[in-house]
Amino acid sequence: MIVGEQKPLEEIKAMVAPYDNFLILGCGTCVKTCFAGGEEEVATLASALRLAFGKDGKKTKISELTVERQCEGEFIRQAASLATQNQAVLSLACGAGVQMVASRFPKIPVLPGVNTTFIGILEQPGLFTEKCLGCGNCVLDVFSGICPISRCSKKLLNGPCGGSKNGKCEVNPETDCAWQLIIDRYQAFGETEKLYNYVPPKDWRTADAGGPRKLVREDLMV
């Protein structure tokens, strides 16, 4: 999933302060799963903002709505009437959702309430970890299923570096060294000879280096 984290209240408050009424728009998919922008978070944030503005003696009307997914136009349509009734939309979706909403409502300011952090997993309750950078050409087969592009601090394709110690990364002793994990996994299924292979430099064109990416599926087009 896309993992995100709600922005600090103070920052959100400053962002929406110029408006007398606005819509907080939640997203029921990824950000809901990571407790950053689902229905529950919309309600909590709305209440917190009402209290914060109320304390300053400012009257603010806050509307609340959560749609299934903000990255699909279909679902955003449901927000149209509420959005147009308000001076601004505070979106609690990931950056993609925020921009999708903005593209649908060209005359209304759409503001981000969430910091989109990474593509990751729920490792254990309350712990989300990054697992993929969306490089556009998955090479997990070469690295025993552990991604060094997103999980090695230096993106080494021929690691580990000299800083790997006791299985931890030199950059942060709390972080596992991706290369230790790669080696451990290859050892576990007896394919350590693969570690001798020289992995050539990556072609970054499929990743973010190639400019904004597009994926076309003609069979699905209407």
Binding site: E40, A43, T44, S47, A48, R50, L51, G54
Partner: peptide, 11 residues
Amino acid sequence: TREVFLLRAFE
């Protein structure tokens, strides 16, 4: 007791 319940009580 959801977070929003607590906040709404203050509201």
